[in-house]
């Protein structure tokens, strides 16, 4: 537990608050400089998930909202490892995921995109990393959808991820993309990421993770800020 050197957001990797190509940032980005306390003056901690109990189907979005059949679309299995910046695995941390269905429609009541809902798919799930920091969940490959940011704007296929890590500075909400998606180069969300970090959100197709006759495999590794080991690393 000697690794309590703290690092801030890597400004060569992380998007800025204000990115004009993404119009909603204009009225929501802080305009004044952020206050930077000395790391020594912060006592850092955050929620821990050692005893967290997942529902039996939480990590299988192909099954967790079934009403009268299986959801439509390409089944995929997403694997990855969650580590800190030193490459140490982050065990027993919670991942929350949400996404559109294979037609590019969210079940969210505010989503008005003119594409069909799937009665057997909600697009919400959770999973935990294991003792080695690995996670896995099954889902349906999300579809692209249009949005109002600019004329003919389309979001590339993506899955939303929420993670905690060891303390509040390692909190992360992000989006996983798919390799070869032609919409990536037109998407202001992706383009808001400095070039050095842009490819880090694109998952990799992996034939070795692909389950024969069932689901295509993708790998998406996640690096959370900081060097903190989680509180249970020594247990």
């Amino acid at each position: 537990m000697s690794d309590i050197i703290q690092t801030g957001f890597d400004r060569e990797i992380q998007p800025n608050y204000l990115y004009e190509g993404y119009k909603s940032t204009l009225l929501r980005a802080p305009t004044k400089p952020l206050i930077m306390p000395k790391k020594a003056d912060l006592t850092l901690s955050g929620p821990v998930f050692k005893d967290f109990e997942l529902g039996a189907l939480d990590s299988d979005l192909t099954k967790n909202a079934v009403k009268n059949g299986e959801p439509l679309g390409e089944r995929i299995v997403v694997h990855g490892k969650v580590t800190n910046e030193k490459g140490h695995p982050i065990p027993y941390t919670l991942l929350e995921i949400w996404q559109a269905n294979s037609s590019g429609r969210y079940i969210h009541k505010a989503d008005q995109h003119n594409a069909p809902l799937d009665p057997n798919f909600s697009g919400a799930g959770r999973c935990m990393t294991d003792a080695e920091g690995n996670y896995k969940f099954y889902t349906i490959k999300p579809g692209a959808y249009s949005w109002g940011n600019h004329p003919n704007a389309w979001r590339p296929n993506h899955i939303h991820f929420s993670l905690f890590g060891g303390d509040i500075t390692s909190r992360l909400i992000t989006q996983m993309y798919f390799p070869g998606d032609p919409l990536l180069e037109f998407d202001p969300m992706v383009q808001s990421i400095p070039l050095k970090g842009r490819d880090l959100l694109i998952s990799k197709f992996d034939l070795a993770l692909t389950e024969p006759d069932f689901a295509l495999g993708f790998r998406f590794d996640i690096v959370l800020r900081g060097h903190h080991a989680t509180p249970f690393e020594n247990q």
Partner: peptide, 19 residues
């Protein structure tokens, strides 16, 4: 040799049914 941080992206408008 630090591993590069995974970049952040917006939570977007449709998080409610997940979070």
């Amino acid at each position: 040799n630090r591993n590069l941080q995974t970049p952040s992206q917006t939570i977007g408008p449709f998080f409610a049914y997940g979070l």
